[in-house]
Each structure stands twice: as C-alpha cells, then as structure tokens.
Simulated scan of single mutants.
Amino acid sequence: GRYSDLPERFPSIAHFHSVRLNQPASKFYNTDFLKSLCDLWNYRGSGMLNLHGSTGDIILLGTTTEQLEPIFFEVTHVMDQDIGGSGSNLRTPSCCIGKARCEWALYDTQEMCYEMTNYYQDELHRPAFPYKFKFKFDGCPNGCVASIARSDMSFIGTWRDDIRIDQAAVQAYINGEYAPNAGAHAGKDWGKFDIKKEVLDLCPTKCMWMEGGELKIDNAECT
C-alpha cells in the first residue's frame, strides 16, 4: 500500500517519491555518469536505484518532497540528463543497441529513438493521455527490446526489397573457408559443415534451398 497517505502512522515514509530519468539511447553509460548518479541519490534520496524499469527509465526510488526541485535542477543542468515519462502520458522511448555494436541492425535505432524523444518532449513531461503509451525501437526482427510485447507502437527493422545474397561468401562458408558459427564451437571436430542440416533445415518457414550450387530464398516467406 501507499503508506505515504498515512504520515501520522508512518512518519519515516511520509514522503516517498520515485523519480524517472530518461536513459541514454541503448543504455550506454560511462563510470563518471554512474558515480555522479549514485552520489546524487545517496545525498538527495534513499540510495536505491533500479536500472532499468520495463520502459527503460533509470528509476530513483524514494525521496522527500523538498528534494524534488534540487534533484531536477542537478540532473538537467549538471548531468545533462532529462526526466523520463511517467503516469498517463508518453513513456520514455527505448531502443536496442542498434548499429552501435550489432551487425544485424537494419536501421539506426539510436537516432530514431533520439529524434522521437525530442519531438515528443511535451507528451513526455505533461500527462494528457487517458493511459500510458510506449514506443520501442528494434533494429531487426530478433527484437532485443521486445517492442511487440512491451510497447504500444513497435518500430522493427526489416529488409527493403529482395534479400541480397553474397553467393561467393555462401560457397566459402560451405567449403570451410569461414568457420561455422564464427568459430564458437571450434574446440571439437564436428565434421564437415552441412548447410542443409545446419542452416536450411533449421529455417522455421523452410524458405531457403540450394539450386544449381546457389542459395535461394523465398523472400515472402522469410521471417
């Protein structure tokens, strides 16, 4: 329950505010920022943090009313970090690691998340909706931020036009010039690489096959 509604009975938690901070895109932090954040919350709040909420925000758990304005000033003016969305409004957009470190990213999730966050600042800071609303940005169908399950509007990277196949690279893979699975299982002799057994037969929609020594893909069936 919210014991702060009964300050006479529970004076030690008469105030119990939680603060949401807008996390950086893909949640990249350096140690200086994290140390400053911990120092701030040890001084102004309970010292308890949640990295991160299901929306993605940095959650600062527990402080008193008179600390809210100093926290806001230090976060925005000293740490260059904005507050996140809470309540019946747009929640803080979040994205996967995208092109920063992932070879599968099909668009720049960080840039899109940044642009949408700035464009909808008013909707983030001033609750005006009947219920919360979330954007999430997945760079590919692997869905590392679970945009379908955990947001109201999903942005998922996918192929444009037909899938492009480097047939020379496929042949090099078949001939053993490239280590299967990037060499992850190189500590044991697994025998000759079998593209049918290890790739084609594992496709859930069976959209790939070999024809005339070339890899073929039914684009409409590829998920």
Rank of each mutant, 00 (worst) to 15 (best):
Y131P: 00
K132Q: 08
F133G: 13
F135T: 09
F135M: 08
K136W: 02
F137H: 10
D138W: 00
G139C: 00
C140V: 10
C140S: 12
N142Y: 00
G143I: 01
G143C: 05
G143K: 11
C144M: 01
V145M: 01
V145R: 00
A146P: 00
A146H: 05
S147Q: 02
R150P: 00
S151Y: 04
F155L: 10
T158I: 09
D161W: 04
D162A: 14
D162Y: 12
D162C: 14
I163P: 15
R164V: 15
R164E: 12
I165Q: 14
I165R: 14
Q167V: 12
Q167P: 14
A169I: 13
Q171Y: 03
Q171W: 00
A172I: 00
Y173N: 14
Y173T: 15
Y173R: 15
I174S: 09
N175P: 06
E177I: 09
Y178C: 06
A179L: 14
N181A: 12
N181R: 03
A184N: 03
H185E: 04
H185K: 09
A186V: 07
G187I: 04
K188C: 02
K188L: 08
W190G: 14
W190F: 09
G191W: 02
K192R: 05
K192A: 06
I195C: 11
K196H: 08
K197P: 05
E198I: 03
V199N: 15
L200F: 07
L200M: 07
D201R: 08
L202F: 04
K206T: 03
K206V: 13
C207N: 12
C207Q: 02
M208G: 10
E211S: 08
